[in-house]
Design a protein around this nucleic acid. Structure first.
Lengths: 345, 345
DNA sequence: CGAGATAGTGGGAGCGCTCCCATACGGCAG
DNA sequence: CTGCCGTATGGGAGCGCTCCCACTATCTCG
């Protein structure tokens, strides 16, 4: 077991089992064309020798890598320092090992921060060092999805760039969640409901805004994108604070806010406190994500829960399908969200 | 660039550059024994052909994988759903790409939940599918570190099993941080200071308890492990709540608590609120980690910050050293912590 | 001016595996 | 008994790379 000793090869197993290389290979790869006797002999030999196949050698001839990459663009990974990130990973990892059959896929984690790193990633993908790619949190202007298409490499996106997205993707029901949150506020008797959106160049932000608008429209109130009730922020706490302050300045009479993320909602809470507004008495607040901080704000934050871990799992399922049977039409999956009401509304 | 076209090999580059295979290989691997003329020709050919070396082939002959694994035992990954997890990864990834030279190491992420997965990991490591391993958050009874020793594989631990740890490891100054927190409470005039520890089978928990005791000893108060001022919890919010309730029952006169994690401190805050104690007027609270939730509790939590991202970076540095020059003595690194005072103390 | 060192180079061997073709071995129908 | 088919099997070829040895060209020094 020492690193100096050479590990046993398939040849050694064959010799020990008294069969040929081909037969051992067949046993390892679960081919049916092996007699019971041979199979047992081989399995015993593998056991005795502690044989483990050399992946590099296999990879060289099959040109499969038995690995997939989870790519996370850095601006996101900061925003998503909350459980989002960890939950996606947990879901991906769980589903990957649930599907582990003869060969189990390894998970490569790639954070992309700098231009330099992006170039390296491009190289890496061009070299086909993985069998497929999971792309978390795509931006509209992200060049990576296009690269994946050009390389014709199995890919699944977390989120999408627009509703015409051609690549397979998985996303929460952003519009539905936002609509539910806004409807909830309406049902509580609020009538002057503002919203803090995420960056408009993200489809998720736009969808959530759309849901908010849809709920209001159903109550007979049309709110366009340029309405003074709509403020854009960048998914950060500070951004949420600033947006809330601006909303209060523009619309002193507002009695509720739907923020497109919990972090921004936390910022909004701070701004409301600074302005002397009570939550929820004066202004009700609902966030999005149902992240850990939602339970720790004062008051605890009502929020739209998205099934993040399940998104990770689903992404893996789609990717495995795509790796298995190439050329299939791409698929899109939308997962339901759920409003969790707490004391802020 | 289509996946059907065969990618160019080193042979193709050699032909195009009008040199031999060996020379191309030398250029790629940065060998100095290449004439400038040859080097230029090869680089041009690589450029023109879009050549990217096949890692599997290289790996097969060098028996290096150019990958390292970051292994996270699952019970942890749940506890560490806070930024901890994400920060470690960010640090690891950053340092890895900072060190990317001719070959850049890939990062494999492996979560270990079940026995099944542990077995698979053992197989994986035995097969030497990675050049080194980063083991986050080790338990005293974790069998993995022993396996790594037996396999003689480069390994760096996040944390350690005891102060006699033989493997390289990186950890925050747990005792120092705890001591600073406790001293801080003493300086604020508190005299009946309790502590909520993590599970005692973790060295980090023990170290923090030690730091707490040391600070009190310096003020002339001896507090042994079985003192009614010491309660053990499991790093969860609920555990913190229960421990705080118990402490209040045992020592109604306490005027401060040092909790060995922010999450437990958050639980303690809830228990104190339930018991009608004001924070910080009646009871001051200090946590550990300075995680995101510390800034969102009511009141905001004083906490001991540990440089988590830096820990990740340092782990990679140690690991790269160990991979480079095998057989070197192992190293240990302790990173300083810093008390961040907020309104809870 | 010859011997020996030095720098660059080409290409054979071989890493451990899968693929696939040739072969062996048993039936079983004619 | 011969011919034929289906099922298992052994092992050659070759995946793309690095290692290393043999070789050439150039330089250095007594």
């Amino acid at each position: 077991m020492n690193s100096n000793e050479r590990r046993p090869t398939i040849e050694a197993v064959a010799a020990r089992a008294g069969v040929g290389r081909g037969t051992v290979s067949r046993v390892i790869n679960g081919s049916p064309k092996v007699s019971a006797r041979a199979r047992e002999a081989v399995e015993a030999a593998i056991q005795e020798l502690g044989y483990v196949p050399n992946r590099a050698a296999r990879s060289l001839v099959t040109s499969r890598t038995d690995a997939i990459a989870l790519v996370i663009p850095e601006p996101e990974s900061r925003l998503l320092a909350e459980p989002y990130f960890a939950d996606i990973i947990r879901g991906v990892s769980a589903e990957l090992s649930a599907n582990a059959g003869a060969v189990d896929l390894q998970l490569l984690l790639i954070l992309v921060r700098t231009e330099e790193e992006r170039k390296r990633l491009t190289n890496f993908l061009t070299a086909r060092r993985v069998d497929g790619v999971l792309l978390a949190a795509v931006h509209d202007r992200d060049p990576l999805p296009d690269l994946m298409e050009k390389l014709d490499m199995p890919t699944v996106l977390g989120g999408r760039r627009s509703d015409r997205e051609r690549l397979s993707h998985v996303q929460p029901d952003n519009a539905g969640g936002a609509e539910a949150a806004t409807t909830h506020l309406l049902e509580r008797g609020r009538r002057h409901i503002a919203t803090i959106t995420g960056p408009r160049e993200m489809e998720a932000s736009r969808s959530r805004l759309r849901g908010y608008q849809r709920a209001l429209a159903a109550y007979g109130t049309a709110v366009d994108d340029a309405s003074p009730l709509v403020a854009e922020a960048d998914f950060t706490e500070e951004g949420g604070r600033a947006a809330m302050a601006e909303l209060l300045a523009r619309q002193p009479g507002l009695d509720a806010v739907f923020a497109a993320s919990d972090v921004m909602a936390a910022g909004a809470l701070a701004a409301l406190r600074a302005a002397g507004r009570r939550v929820p008495e004066d202004v009700a607040v609902v966030g999005f994500d149902d992240s850990m901080i939602a339970r720790h704000t004062t008051p605890p934050l009502s929020s739209v829960r998205q099934p993040i871990e399940e998104m990770g799992r689903e992404m893996v399922r789609l990717l495995l399908d795509e790796i298995e049977e190439r050329g299939r039409s791409h698929r899109r999956v939308v997962l339901a969200t759920e409003l969790v009401a707490r004391e802020s509304s």
